[in-house]
Design a protein around this nucleic acid. Structure first.
Lengths: 288, 288
DNA sequence: ATGATCCATGAGAGCCGCTCATGGTCTCGG
DNA sequence: CCGAGACCATGAGCGGCTCTCATGGATCAT
């Protein structure tokens, strides 16, 4: 009852959950099925609750087990961060693995310069970038599921606060109107929209205008969109940085009422304080 | 290097930090000084960094030690939450201890009804309320220092985001003007201000008025303030709930431009997800 | 010097978590 | 209906880890 749980026990709980049975977890962890059985029994005694329903198909977590597993994963993450972090603070190289989930345009525009500087500062830091389409749960879902340490998100991001994630703002920028060079009346062109575009604020802006776009084309990729605009197929409203460094389109400032997009990040609270995540956030912020 | 740290080791680190020496920590934990020494040596080996500078005055954490201790405290808190929480989920009584830090008026007005309902829901939940003057770091400081699980704060609250706390809004209410009953010209009375009053927004409001208070009296306690107003010593601008249920003062609505105060909470991220903290937040929110 | 603080270290006791071996229970397929 | 093959449970025993009990060494006061 007053006994501590060990990291090994928590790892066993988590592994049973993801593998689905005691024996599979044992195999995965290089242990005996017996060890796993004993261990679970022990933690159940310590916690004072039954954590798994054992059946022929393996083991399923009970309600209590769910909570234990969830918090247990948090403990394990935090302990990993503790080790990496104190090693880093002692002057050793930060030799961790940082898993970033980002939507395409962020990965293409924000991450390269930030990662360059991060690599210069921490050469031993291994970085995984996974590209996630920013629909549904979006990139934050990757953090919730434990597949990423930090997610780059478009703010405001609609995810129940109950997930317990923490985050912050990275940069804010206005949208600009882009159109083909040399067109006599760009606003008569059809609008090219982009699936992952944070459409709420741009839609609002369009609604407030006294002119209406003639038609709408939907495109899945921002590079394709830029190329279509450059070829005269239409005009588009995109974040300024998306259109930066393109000589083949014309940017038109939308003035004070321009829609703006805010890019932020989200991380599990245990990881938000780790050196690796904080270093990345610092680099991303210093870009603008 | 790949070895897990145990909860006992983390507790030893934290205790050395707060007690200042190996021997004092040993005494506090009911261990031998030898055990502490061995333990620290072991964790230093596991982590790969020296965590304490040993001197004649005891032991001081190194930079690496600071980080290990900080994260270690987080791990310990999270492990405690894990145990309480899974027990609660298994149908047992939630038998935890919830430490609340609040400023005086919140403790007096918000907490009593919320705690009544909390007690009805979780009879076994032990609650400690500590009153903290809302100056300087304010109540949030108590959470940062680990002396409280949740703090009631006035928003916006100015604390560096780097502390990694999470929080939210609980309620928002307007300020009202109160003055003695039956006074011919209440606005000619001196203003009684109150040290803990969230003065920024009320100062702004006064500055925007076309009349100026004749003088200012400062009082340290809201009950005293109300009593002074009731006795005709002056008038005051206070949050509406502060003046509620007082028949001996007159409340005057300040209209649409009235200053407002926002009350929120702040908690360590590990604790924000615990059943106890979430239950309290739920109760506090359902008051308004 | 002597004592009072610290922390370090070596040797042993005890506990805890592992493996090994075995047994129980349920669900298949012949 | 009876093995075979999934599961998980349990008891015995071994090894390692972490305690205590001794010391010992360093530094600072008186």
């Amino acid at each position: 009852m007053l006994d501590d749980l060990t990291a090994a026990e928590l790892r066993i709980l988590a592994t049973i959950d993801s593998e689905g049975s005691f024996s599979a977890a044992a195999a995965k962890l290089g242990l005996t099925q017996s060890a796993v059985s004993h261990s679970v029994r022990g933690t159940e005694r310590k916690v004072g609750a039954v954590l798994f329903e054992r059946g022929r198909q393996g083991a399923r977590p009970t309600a209590a087990g769910e909570r234990a597993i969830k918090h247990g994963r948090g403990v394990l993450r935090l302990m990993a961060v503790l080790q990496e972090d104190t090693r880093a603070a002692s002057g050793a190289e930060l030799a961790a693995r940082l898993r970033i989930a980002a939507f395409r345009s962020a990965a293409a525009q924000l991450l390269p310069p930030a990662l360059t500087r991060l690599r210069a500062r921490y050469p031993q830091l291994a970085v995984d970038v996974s590209i996630v389409r920013d629909v549904g749960g979006g990139t934050a879902q990757e953090v919730v599921a434990g597949r990423a340490d930090i997610a780059i998100v478009n703010l405001p991001h609609r995810l129940p606060a109950s997930t317990g994630l923490v985050g912050g703002t990275l940069l804010e920028e206005p949208y600009v109107l882009i159109h083909p060079p040399g067109h006599p009346d760009p606003r008569s062109l059809p609008v090219i929209d982009w699936t992952e575009n944070c459409s709420a604020s741009t839609k609002e802006w369009f609604a407030a205008q006294d002119w209406l776009p003639s038609a709408t084309i939907n495109v899945a990729d921002d590079t394709v969109l830029l190329s279509m605009v450059a070829h005269g197929l239409g005009m588009a409203v995109v974040p300024r940085s998306t259109a930066a460094d393109r000589a083949d389109v014309v940017r038109e400032d939308l003035g004070a009422g321009a829609p703006r997009r805010t890019v932020g990040y989200v991380a599990a609270p245990e990881l938000a304080r780790s050196t690796a995540v904080r270093a990345l956030v610092r680099e991303l912020r210093s870009l603008s």
